[in-house]
Each structure stands twice: as structure tokens, then as C-alpha cells.
């Protein structure tokens, strides 16, 4: 059951930003995560500010320099089915397509997907865990088969977004506004690791709103992809996922950006995989080396060592697939 809150649905961004000055106001994009969090008492609020009636936050359009602008409230369904995204920013379409279920993709927004709360079953459940202001992470010594193998520090969640690693790999930048200022935050710097603050998922302030995502023009030779493995083939988060954005020169990988999902409390940049493939042709030896590199230094918990083999297999398979 939901707490009592007022619901504002302004028609302009300016009004929305003004309304967000209230201390505990929460932003409503599509509501697919917000409503669940409120019902499950992950947090509470007295004011919900909906972005759903603001035309300037919608839409997907090419930018003058060959890039793309995705409005914050573009739905995952719109993104998954957008021809230019599928063609030029494939990883994003791949990711949007495998989020949740058709109903949730129809309702869920791209900015909401980036800013969603963790799915850790302790965090979502009736456990006063560290991230919710308690004293310990229950996953560390508990049921941690879905938890992180990288970047755990006091808290061992995995970041749940599929689109975040894809957007990060392609160099997307969030445009962020508050009533007083506007700034840009690259998606790969949007999320906060628990080593910095285990009670915060993004660098956004409570009065800030992601208004749009801007993608740079794809360089010649860019190929990108995203795939996740889950324990159920629909309506499930990643056990492991990988977003690849590789710039090829012939058979040679000139540059690479590789982000993992299901691996760490934030979308996890695997510089080790990038290093293993940059300057190389994706032959069997390189792919094997990259797969091993993907899990080098991983720190599995008691119940998730299987993720090492999983990431190795996933990265190898995706590198083979993108090689063509």
C-alpha cells in the first residue's frame, strides 16, 4: 500500500523543477520503479512530481552533428523500436528490448531506467540494510547468488539497468537541470559506487532532473551490442550482461568501450577487456584472453562464483558475434 503523497503533473519543465525544491519530493517518469518502491516502503515521500506531461522531455531525434538526442521520458518501447537507434546505436536498442516485459517497456522511461533503485532482495524486502540506513549488508553473508563480483564495498548490490551499460559504452551524456542550473553528466559517471557512498545510487541531487540523453555521432567502424543472461527469459534482470562499443578498422579493434551489467554496484567498465582487444583482431586467442580478463580480479561471494564462468562465456560469445 502506498504512502499518502501529493501528485503534481506540471506541463513545463520549469514548473517541475520548481516543485522539486521540496525536500523529499520524488520524480515520476513512468512510475514502474517508483510505485514499487513506495509500495514496498523502500522509501517514502510526501510529494511526487510527474514528468509525464512535459512535451520537451519526450522524443528521439538526430542532432546536428550526427548524434542523437533521446528525451528523458522516451519509453523503452520507443527506443527499442527506433530504426536509427537499432541501426547506429545498436547496443541501446538491444538493451531496451530486453528490459522487463512489454507492459513495463511501454510505461518505463529511459531516464527512469538509468536512475532506478537496486533490485537486491534485501534492499527491496523488509530488511533494514545498510543502503536503507541500517548497519549491515545482508547479502554479504546471506543469499547472494545475484549479487556483485566487482566493486562491492559495504554494499554488494548489482546495478539493475540494462540501458546504462549500453549508453555508457556509446559515450552518452545526461543533460541535467535544476531550478538554478544545468549541467552535463556522462552516463559512465552518473552512478555512485558504494565505496563513495553506499546510500546513494547517482550523483544527481534531489532537485535535479535528467532532461535528455545525448549521444555523439558514431565514429566510422563502430559496432555495438548488448546481451544479458537471466534466469527467466522475460521479466528478469541480468545475472550478467555486457555492452560492447568497438570501433573497427578492418579486422582490428581500434578502440573499445566495454561495460558489464549484473557485475557490480554500478555499470562496470571493464578496462581489462578493453585492453585485451584494443589493437587486436578478434581471433580465438584474443577472445579467450579477453574473456579471462573480464573476470580478472573478481571477488565472488559465497553463492555467486558461477558468475565468473558466466561472464567469461558471455564476453567470449559477444565478441565472436560482433566480429561477424
Amino acid at each position: 500500500m502506498l504512502p499518502k503523497f501529493s501528485h503534481l503533473r506540471p506541463a513545463t519543465l520549469r514548473e517541475a523543477l520548481a516543485a522539486l525544491d521540496a525536500s523529499d519530493a520524488r520524480i515520476h517518469g513512468g512510475g514502474t520503479d517508483l510505485v514499487g518502491c513506495l509500495r514496498d516502503r523502500v522509501f517514502t515521500t510526501e510529494r511526487v512530481v510527474s514528468l509525464s506531461a512535459i512535451p520537451e522531455l519526450r522524443g528521439i531525434a538526430a542532432t546536428g552533428d550526427g548524434g542523437l538526442r533521446i528525451g528523458a521520458t522516451a519509453t523503452l518501447t520507443e527506443i527499442a523500436g527506433h530504426p536509427a537507434i537499432a541501426d547506429r546505436f545498436t547496443a541501446i536498442a538491444d538493451a531496451a528490448r530486453v528490459v522487463a516485459s512489454p507492459q513495463l517497456r511501454n510505461q518505463g522511461t529511459i531516464a527512469g531506467n538509468l536512475c532506478q533503485k537496486p533490485r537486491c532482495w534485501y534492499y527491496r524486502g523488509d530488511f533494514h540494510c545498510l543502503r536503507k540506513g541500517g548497519e549491515l549488508c545482508y547479502a554479504y553473508e546471506g543469499e547472494n547468488q545475484h549479487h556483485c563480483i566487482f566493486g562491492g564495498d559495504l554494499c554488494y548490490i548489482v546495478h539493475p539497468s540494462d540501458t546504462a551499460p549500453a549508453l555508457a559504452a556509446l559515450g552518452a551524456v545526461c543533460r541535467v537541470s535544476s531550478a538554478s542550473a544545468t549541467r552535463s553528466v556522462p552516463v559512465d559517471r552518473l552512478h555512485v559506487p558504494p565505496s563513495v557512498d553506499p546510500r546513494r545510487e547517482t550523483v544527481l541531487e534531489p532537485d535535479e532532473v535528467v532532461t535528455e540523453l545525448v549521444l555523439p555521432a558514431p565514429p566510422a567502424g563502430l559496432r555495438s551490442s548488448y546481451l544479458k543472461i537471466r534466469s527467466r527469459n522475460a521479466w528478469d534482470f541480468a545475472l550478467a550482461g555486457v555492452a560492447l562499443a568497438l570501433v573497427f578498422d578492418g579486422d582490428i579493434v581500434r578502440s573499445a568501450r566495454v561495460f558489464l551489467s549484473g557485475a557490480a554496484p554500478v555499470p562496470w567498465r571493464s578496462t581489462a577487456v578493453e585492453a585485451a582487444i584494443t589493437g587486436q583482431a578478434l581471433d580465438a586467442a584474443t577472445i579467450a584472453a579477453a574473456a579471462s580478463a573480464a573476470v580478472a580480479g573478481a571477488e565472488p561471494l559465497s553463492g555467486n562464483a558461477y558468475k565468473l564462468a558466466l561472464f567469461e562465456g558471455l564476453v567470449a560469445g559477444q565478441l565472436e558475434a560482433i566480429r561477424g
Binding site: 516485459s101 534485501y122 527491496r124 530488511f127 545482508y138 546471506g142 534466469s231 527467466r232
Partner: peptide, 29 residues
């Protein structure tokens, strides 16, 4: 293939008492 009740060993409470974390097969499964 998919379903299993998970009880937290530390508290004895069920951690997946909802239709997302408890995996009933979908049409794709």
C-alpha cells in the same frame, strides 16, 4: 528450471516473496 523459495539463512525470512524474484516460468520459458 526456474522456481525456488529462498529463505535468508541469517533471519529465516523469505527474500523472494514476490512475483518478480520468485521465478514462475513465462511463455518464453
Amino acid at each position: 528450471v526456474t522456481e525456488e523459495r529462498v529463505l535468508d539463512r541469517q533471519t529465516g525470512r523469505m527474500v523472494n516473496a514476490n512475483l518478480h524474484d520468485y521465478k514462475i516460468p513465462t511463455m518464453l520459458d
